[in-house]
Design a protein around this nucleic acid. Sequence first.
DNA 1: TAATAAGCGGAGCGGTGCTCCGTATGTCAA
DNA 2: TTGACATACGGAGCACCGCTCCGCTTATTA
Lengths: 193, 193
Amino acid sequence: MATPPRARRSDAQRNRDRLLEVARTVFEEQGAQASLRDIARRAEVGLGTLYRHFPTRDALLDSLLGRHFDALAAQAADLAAAHPPREALTTWLRAFAAQAAAYQDLSAALMDTINDETSPLHASCSAMRGAGARLLRDAQDAGDVRPDVDGLELFALVNAVAWITGHSPAVAARRDHLLDLVLDGLAAPSSRR
Amino acid sequence: MATPPRARRSDAQRNRDRLLEVARTVFEEQGAQASLRDIARRAEVGLGTLYRHFPTRDALLDSLLGRHFDALAAQAADLAAAHPPREALTTWLRAFAAQAAAYQDLSAALMDTINDETSPLHASCSAMRGAGARLLRDAQDAGDVRPDVDGLELFALVNAVAWITGHSPAVAARRDHLLDLVLDGLAAPSSRR
DNA sequence: TAATAAGCGGAGCGGTGCTCCGTATGTCAA
DNA sequence: TTGACATACGGAGCACCGCTCCGCTTATTA
């Protein structure tokens, strides 16, 4: 994640903080596609001010989520050390899915960063993806997960589930179940419960 | 699907046909979120004309896809009669996924119709969903598919896969594999190959 | 306290979805 | 063939969007 550049003037720092605070609640209310103008308005700040602090929507998302993603990457290592591979993987994926469901349509933004290295989200997100891929490989080496899946596919599937739950209240209520179905399906046949 | 109201004036009919033709190619090029203004322009027709013929984007999509969805619903019955439940289900789901991938982001539109009975797509889509749910139940009764899945969840999962493949070329190349992973995961443990 | 770098804010551009209504034209009866 | 009229056309206009640009304000520092 990008280092937060401490502003040189106190009002700039104050505005930045306000924007982040407002952006968080607006994104929670309306999803990751919310109007940036609206965020600026509610932060009682000019639109230019918003764009100066956060040149792109991704930059704003990164400032809000970057440290969570970094934490997820770190957690992957912890889980790998403390739990059997299969358990580590599923626990981690659940945590990731919960994070990806923070704002509606965030999954779309995350998927798009895969192909766009210029996005600030790309860095924090790809580091996290790497961590997940490592957990996957461990579980596959242990024979717990079918070998014909790779990190990209896993990331895509979990994001797909996170995304779909944002498009229907009825489906949202079953997010955990849908995730279970997918994860269960990835289990190696020999290890299937 | 809504009955196609034969226009009373020949120019109206001509414009309607032009719009549908152009809309099909534009949606294929740019996805289901393409600019309606752009469609009107390329059809060399006023924007008002487009909106008179198709009051909403969903109405336009329905006119383009409705009969395909009706055909899918019909195909479900044929498959149920001619094939074992499991095979009927997977064959049908593949056909549906192919259709759902026709235009990028179409899956989002389809998911949204679930909660919006006023959408023209709702009718043709829910009929089709019913047909799929019936195939699912057959397969479950035969013990081929795990019993703790319902039609809504199945629809959501397949749409999720269709959607995600539209958000990354790398993922798009593996659409069939992702679908296999999900369908395989839904197999009843006892019947797993 | 005055100079100045730093930051602010919103007008403006080109785009979107969608509505509304004055105008044009296809159709059909005379 | 020629009107008269229902039908359909087309785009101006409204409110919104993302994003840029630049004249003005203000916090900071000497």
